[in-house]
Every structure is written in structure tokens, then in C-alpha cells.
Design a protein around this nucleic acid. Structure first.
Length: 438
RNA sequence: CGGAGUGUGGCUCAGCCUGGUAGAGCACUGCGUUCGGGACGCAGGGGUCGUAGGUUCAAAUCCUAUCACUCCGACCA
């Protein structure tokens, strides 16, 4: 039976029984948790802290992460980028070659191996990918090329905080594109702008693309993608009546206040806060030149490649989504990244055979309908089961109890609904499929 | 790195000022009663009070050092 599901259900989406899974919720958040997403992720048992800015992703949290990753992968693949996987540990020589061994500062975690050779734990992978490409690609005929990976990064932040939103170890999607001409780089940059817009839209986030400073990574042409949230660390100046939006780190709006004229002349500026979850850059040739990443052009001459780089903070997205979606009861996940689509909550699992058989039957039906469902077979008291699932933020819930079962009904409730709706047992699967499809 | 704090059972915290038998709630184990919104009773298990020195008859409590963590600032694809 399981075998047939494996054909079309990705491994992270396997349906689950609560006793088989691992649910570890807390009534109170640890005292050092500062922002709401961090408190809720800890309380919901999604993450556990190992050291400052370093977290274990528990099974419940990993499911969320996996769903975010899956969407990022799908859209990157759709855009024609190819996935690879680079080492976290990188030799110092490569960083000396690019000049960043000196330039990067203490945020770069350095260490020596047993032979006393210097290494770093990668905070980013421009050096490594450029090294790969300079060895592999020699001709304009092999360009353009876009490689990406989803990988653990380490940045030794001065002050890690806000849980997974500013961790030291975190998961990032980083893509690097290589081009024969600047025009082709600009084309790919536009493709990535669209791709990022698709990704954040599919994830169900309220976001805005903003013009950005290039920072230490260098180059020209850069946009950040911000999830809009009051707890964000960045301030964005935007014009509600045009497309203009910029990080206030940018010179042209660094002293802007609400009501100032927009630099594009199309209205006045407003200010809001954002969490940076994506960043795209036109690096141009700076790394290619430093690392001699050259190709032979149509005229037979050697020239450095044009480069773009594109990052998404995968772990940060989860925190940002929770900052944007929560209430007094807990997390409200966008359906695309909830650990499960739907939970079946049977009241009196061990007491009522009718409840148990109905729950099992419905569980099977929903699995066959392709729904990512969890069956709460823990036989807990109703209050604690309902509180758990509201804390964890499962979008759809079906409660099965003797009371409504007598009338052939179960109760359906969306996480955002204030009350449950009685639904005939015969209609519930259809209703849920409609809700999930839409 | 500057400034301010906090370290007491898995979690939230009290006790410290004024030194004298280590506590509460949650969680955990057993039994019973419960069971449609985080139940109750009884009985249990679990803590070298961050660590190392010092003062003292006696230190969770006072002193010194050290480590970890948190907050504010500088930093940050």
C-alpha cells in the first residue's frame, strides 16, 4: 500500500499518524526567545537551540523547510538553472585569490586542519562556483550557464538573534549565472526577478522587491525581496502609486520620511519594515577577473565572464512567514508551507470505536485524494489536541466526535475560521479537496 | 568590541538584599477519577544552584576570576 503512494508523493509529504511522528509542544517559550516567530517555533517544537544562532530543525520544522525548498527548486529548475552541491568547507587559497580572505572580516569563520592549513566554513560560494566554472567552461558556446544549490551556510554574526531569522548557521539557496555578455546577464537577471516573484507568491507571502545597495559582495544592479513585517530589520521606502521601492540604505532615500516625493517622480513615499528573504545581484566581472574565469569569444579572444548571483534565505523564510502569519493561538502558515495540509482530530480515540473507525476511514480517503494529512491518534484530551494543532498552524482541521457522528457529521474548520462547520461525512472529502485546490 | 543584565530539575520562575535542612507551577512515572477547548486527587523520580577559587563554624545567598547566554550600540549577500 505504502509503495504505491511513493510513486507520486514526495518523501517529505508522507501522511502521518501523530504517535508515529514527533510532537513536542511547550506551553511557555524559553525566556531568551525575543521575536514572535522564534517563540512560536520553539513552542511548536519546530526548532531547538543548540548554541547562539545555531538550531536543530525538528521533524515538524523540517517538513516546513522541505516544502519551502521544494517550491524554490521547482521554480529554479523551471527557470533553467541546474542544481549542484558545493562543499561547506573551503580552502583559504581560494579566498586569498578573490581578495576576501583579508576583506571579509571576523564574520568569516576560519580554522586550520591537522596540517595547519587554513580553511573557512563557507558563508557564500562565489569563489567555489567560479573555480568550478573556470575549470569547466572555456568557450562562448558553453554559455550561458546557471548553477544553484541549497546548502548550509555559516556566518559568524556579531550578534545572532531572532531565532532562525538571523542565525549563524542557516540554509540558503544560492545561484550563480555566467554569461558571455552584459546583455545576456541582464536577461537572466530579469528572469530571476520573475522567478523570485513566482517563488514568494507561491509561498503565500506578502512581499515587495526593492532596489538595494550592493554591500560587500560588490557589482552593480541589485534587488532585495522583502517580506513585509513590522518586526523586520530593514526599512523600505516605497511609492504606493508606482513600482518604486528601495531599501533606505540606498543613498537616494537614506534620509527619506513618509510624504517625501518619490525619486521616480510618480507620487510620494511611504515607509515600512521588511525582512530580507531574497537578493539578486549583477556581479559583472569582478570575481571572474580576480579568479581568471575567462572564456574564448566568437572572435577567438579571451575575456572574463559576466556573472550574476541570486540568493534566497530558506530558513529565514520560515521565520518571516510566521512573523506575517500568527495570532494569539499560534502560527497561521500559508498553506504552501504548513507541515501538514490537514489534521484529523478524533475525540475519544480509545473510547469510541465509531470515532476510531471513521477517523481511519477518512484518513485513508484523504491520503488517496493526495492530501498531506496527519491523524491525531494520541488519545489526548480534546483541549490539548486542539491547542497543539492551532499552535503548529495546520490550515485545515476535521474534528470527529460521537456527538456529531450520531447525525452522520464531522466538523470542519480552517485555521483562520472562528467557528467549526458541521459537514456530512459523505461530503467531507470533496469539500476538503475543493478547499485545498483553491 | 563598548554599555546593561541573567545563569537554581526538561520549560517558566521564586529563594539571594538580611548566609543556617534547595522550593513552586508546567512536563515526566504509577494508580484512580475524568474526557468537545491545554482536567483533578494521591503517590513518586529528577537539581554538585554555570564553573573555579576565596571569606566563614556554615555559601544558591557575600567576594574574585572565568565561561555561557540575553538585551542596547557598532556590523551584516
Amino acid at each position: 500500500m505504502i509503495k504505491s503512494f511513493c510513486v507520486y508523493i514526495p518523501r517529505f509529504y508522507l501522511p502521518m499518524r501523530a504517535r508515529q511522528f514527533f510532537i513536542s509542544t511547550l506551553k511557555e517559550a524559553p525566556a531568551d526567545a525575543e521575536v514572535i516567530s522564534q517563540k512560536l517555533m520553539l513552542r511548536a517544537g519546530m526548532i531547538r537551540r543548540l548554541a547562539a544562532g545555531i538550531y536543530t530543525w525538528m521533524p515538524m520544522g523540517l517538513r516546513v523547510l522541505a516544502k519551502v525548498e521544494a517550491i524554490v527548486r521547482e521554480e529554479m529548475n523551471r527557470a533553467g538553472a541546474l542544481e549542484l552541491f558545493m562543499p561547506a568547507v573551503q580552502p583559504a587559497e581560494l579566498w586569498a585569490e578573490s581578495g576576501r580572505w583579508e576583506k571579509y572580516g571576523p564574520e568569516l569563520l576560519r580554522f586550520k586542519d591537522r596540517h595547519d592549513r587554513d580553511f573557512v566554513i563557507g558563508p557564500t560560494h562565489e569563489e567555489v562556483i567560479t573555480d568550478v566554472v573556470r575549470r569547466e567552461i572555456k568557450s562562448y558556446k558553453q554559455l550561458p550557464r546557471h548553477f544553484y544549490q541549497i546548502q548550509t551556510k555559516f556566518r559568524d554574526e556579531i550578534r545572532p538573534r531572532f531565532g532562525v531569522m538571523r542565525g549563524r548557521e542557516f540554509l540558503m539557496k544560492d545561484g550563480y549565472s555566467f554569461h558571455a555578455t552584459f546583455e545576456d546577464l541582464q536577461r537572466e537577471y530579469a528572469v530571476m526577478y520573475e522567478t523570485y516573484t513566482r517563488i514568494f507568491t507561491r509561498l503565500g507571502l506578502k512581499f515587495r522587491a526593492v532596489a538595494a545597495d550592493n554591500g560587500a559582495i560588490g557589482g552593480t544592479g541589485s534587488h532585495e525581496f522583502h517580506v513585509l513585517a513590522d518586526s523586520g530589520e530593514d526599512v523600505i521606502a516605497y511609492c504606493p502609486t508606482s513600482d518604486y521601492a528601495a531599501n533606505v540604505e540606498l543613498k537616494e532615500v537614506c534620509h527619506a520620511v513618509a510624504g517625501d516625493p518619490s525619486p521616480d517622480g510618480q507620487g510620494t513615499l511611504e515607509l515600512c519594515r521588511g525582512i530580507e528573504v531574497g537578493h539578486i545581484f549583477q556581479l559583472r566581472t569582478q570575481y571572474a577577473e580576480a579568479l581568471n574565469c575567462n572564456f574564448i569569444n566568437e572572435q577567438g579572444q579571451e575575456q572574463p565572464m559576466e556573472m550574476g548571483c541570486y540568493g534566497i534565505g530558506v530558513t529565514r523564510i520560515v521565520g518571516a512567514a510566521i512573523e506575517q502569519g500568527h495570532d494569539e493561538r499560534g502560527i497561521i502558515f500559508p498553506s504552501a508551507m504548513a507541515p501538514f495540509d490537514l489534521v484529523i482530530v478524533p475525540m475519544g480515540w480509545n473510547k469510541s470505536e465509531a470515532v476510531r473507525t471513521t477517523a481511519e476511514k477518512l484518513y485513508g480517503e484523504l491520503i488517496r485524494a493526495g492530501i498531506d494529512v496527519i491523524l491525531d491518534d494520541r488519545d489526548e484530551r480534546p483541549g490539548s489536541m486542539l491547542a497543539d494543532w492551532e499552535l503548529i498552524g495546520i490550515p485545515h482541521r476535521i474534528v470527529i466526535g460521537d456527538r456529531s457522528l450520531k447525525e452522520g457529521r464531522v466538523e470542519y474548520q480552517h485555521r483562520r475560521d472562528s467557528t467549526a462547520t458541521p459537514v456530512n461525512l459523505t461530503d467531507i472529502t470533496t469539500l476538503v479537496c475543493q478547499r485545498l485546490g483553491g
